[in-house]
Simulated assay, not measured.
Amino acid sequence: MAARLARSGFWCHLPNYPRPIPRQPSPIQTLRLNRFASYQRFPGRGPQQTQYRTRFRPINRVQYVWNNYRRQIATVGVGSGVVYVYNLEPVPITGRRRFNILSAKTEKSIMEGGYPLLLEELKGKILPAEHPYTRMVANVVERLLPAVKELAGDEWRVHVINDPKQMNAFVMPGGKVFVFTGLLPICEDEDGLAVVLGHEIAHNVAHHAAERLSRSIFTWPFIAAASIILDVSGGTVQFITDLIFSLPNSRTHEAEADHIGLLMMAQSCYNPEAAIPFWERMKEAQKGAPPQFLSTHPSDYSRIKAITEWLPEAKDKYQESGCGLTGGYARKFSQAFGKQGVMGRKQPVIFQPARSPQQEDDDLW
C-alpha cells in the first residue's frame, strides 16, 4: 500500500509525514544485474558489443568470439574446406573416400621412427628365426604379399614375441610384423593366422596410419578451441571428440581392414571361411570387452555378420586365383617335394627377424 501511495504522489500532501526509504538491492541481486549487463570490448572505440542474455558462460564466449572474429572464422572455415576437399582420395580396394595429406613415403618415415625403440623394449622376448612359430608366421606373410603389390617395395621383417598373455599382432608401415605367441592358440592353423595377418597388412594397404595423422590436423585445433570456450579440461573434450569422431572412424578402419584382409587371404589360397570360426574363438577369449561404441574395434558379433556378407566375394576371389581342388593338390605337392621344414619350408627366404646395430653380436635371436 505504501509503495502504491508513493508512486501516486500521495506523500507530497503530507508535509510532516516521514517518507519511505527506497529498498536497496542485495549484493546477490547486484551481481546478477551486472552479469547480464552490456559488455564492450574496447570502451569508447566503436559499436561492437556483446549482450549477455544467458547465465551459461560458454554461450557468452561463443557470442563474443563470433561478434569480434567472424571474418577470421569464416576465412579459416572456407580454407579448411578447400584443403579437405582437395585432399580427398579413394581407399585402395574398397573405394571409400577419405581425407589424407600424407604420402606413403612420409607415413613410413614417421612410423618407422619408433621401430628401434620397440625392438629395444621387446629385447629378450623375440623368438629366433629358426623357431617353428617364426617360420610359420613368415610363411603366411610370404604367401600374402603377392596379393598386395602396393607394398612390394617395403623391407619386410617378422618378429614373434614370446608372451602367452598377449593376444595381439600388428604390422608397422614399412613391413615390420609383430605377432605375440598368446594369439597363436586362437589362430589354431595357418588359415587362422592368415585372418590376423591379412587384417593387419590391410591397414598398411589402406594407409590408415596416414589417415589418422591427417585427421589430427583438424581434431587437435578443435579440441584446443573447445576447451577454451567451454572452460573445461582438454581431457574432457578429447573424450567427447573420441566418442563422436575418433572411435567411429577407428571402427571404420577395422571393418575395412577385415574386408581387405579377407580378399587378400582368399587370393593367397587361404580358406576365407576360416575367418568366422577365428572371430568366434576370439569372442570367447575376450569376454568382458567394452561396448562397441566405447571401443576402437567393432564387436565380434558385428564382425562376424559383416564377414558373412563378404564371403561370396571372397569365395569368388578364391576360385579366380586357382585355389580350388586342383590348386590345393598343387600346393601340397610343392610342399612335399620342395623345400622341407616346419610349414613346408626349410627357411623363409625374405623374412628374418631384424637386428638393431647394437644387437648384431647378441644371442637374442
Rank of each mutant, 00 (worst) to 15 (best):
214 S>T: 05
214 S>A: 09
214 S>D: 08
215 R>S: 15
215 R>N: 06
215 R>P: 01
216 S>T: 11
216 S>R: 14
218 F>A: 08
218 F>N: 01
219 T>K: 05
219 T>I: 13
220 W>R: 11
220 W>K: 12
221 P>A: 15
221 P>N: 15
221 P>Y: 13
222 F>L: 07
222 F>G: 06
222 F>E: 12
222 F>W: 14
222 F>N: 04
223 I>W: 04
223 I>V: 12
225 A>F: 12
225 A>N: 03
225 A>Y: 09
225 A>H: 09
226 A>M: 14
226 A>G: 05
227 S>Q: 02
227 S>P: 07
228 I>V: 12
228 I>C: 07
228 I>K: 12
229 I>Q: 01
229 I>S: 03
229 I>Y: 02
230 L>R: 10
230 L>W: 02
231 D>G: 12
231 D>T: 10
231 D>H: 15
231 D>I: 08
232 V>N: 01
232 V>F: 04
233 S>I: 11
233 S>H: 15
234 G>E: 12
234 G>T: 15
234 G>P: 01
235 G>N: 12
235 G>F: 03
235 G>V: 04
235 G>K: 10
236 T>H: 02
237 V>Y: 03
238 Q>P: 08
238 Q>E: 12
238 Q>W: 11
239 F>S: 14
239 F>D: 09
239 F>E: 11
239 F>R: 15
240 I>Q: 03
240 I>R: 12
242 D>I: 06
245 F>S: 11
245 F>D: 14
245 F>Y: 07
246 S>W: 01
246 S>Q: 10
247 L>V: 02
247 L>K: 07
247 L>C: 03
248 P>R: 08
248 P>N: 04
249 N>C: 05
249 N>Y: 10
249 N>L: 02
250 S>K: 06
250 S>Y: 14
250 S>V: 09
250 S>D: 07
250 S>F: 03
251 R>A: 08
252 T>A: 11
253 H>E: 13
254 E>H: 03
254 E>D: 09
254 E>S: 05
255 A>F: 05
